[in-house]
């Protein structure tokens, strides 16, 4: 095995690794949509977050604009506070916007559906660190069934 051919094959090996890495980065892990770069932070307080997890997407009309970056309990009223990291290019949501926890499909992952509100005079845009006032919690299947049974029994 002469040296030229050895080095050539090692070069091919390295190129294949780079190709594999690129495939994993761009096609599999989708590194491009990960909220690197400029972001700002919003907070939303819910009654119940259901199955929401850190890294769950935040979507406006199906378009991912950010991710959940942490979930904590408020120390005063023990309700969950969700920290949202939003891409900086989407920075003009009015304060009347609402956030609700939705499920993609019947058994799919949960995400935050963000609904931009109306803009009138005197309504400012959401800025870094603001709380979203208008939130609605996740639907928990057991609670729904409980309510259904309760309403059935009260009818009889």
């Amino acid at each position: 095995m002469n040296r030229y051919k050895t080095e050539l094959m090692v070069g091919v090996f390295v190129l294949m690794t780079i190709a594999a890495l690129l495939l994993l980065a761009l096609k599999v892990a989708n590194q491009t949509v990960v909220t690197d770069g400029d972001t700002y932070t919003l907070y939303a307080k819910f009654d119940n977050i259901g199955g929401l997890k850190v890294r769950s997407p935040v979507k406006v009309g199906g378009v991912t604009i950010g991710r959940v970056s942490s979930i904590k309990l408020d120390s005063d009223d023990y309700s969950p506070v969700v920290e949202l990291t939003i891409q900086a290019e989407y920075n003009a949501f009015p304060e009347t916007s609402s956030a609700s926890i939705l499920t993609s499909g019947l058994l799919g992952e949960q995400y935050i559906g963000f609904e931009p509100g109306f803009t009138i005079d005197g309504v400012e845009n959401l800025a870094d660190g603001d709380y979203i006032e208008d939130t609605s919690s996740a639907l928990v299947l057991e609670e729904l069934i409980g309510q259904f049974l309760f309403s059935r029994s009260s009818e009889e």
């Binding site: 090996f13 390295v14 294949m16 690794t17 190709a19 594999a20 890495l21 495939l23 994993l24 599999v28």
Partner: peptide
Amino acid sequence: LSMPMLALIFSAVGIL
């Protein structure tokens, strides 16, 4: 050097 490179190629080829 080789093993992590081989593992990456393995995963990528497997996904394909």
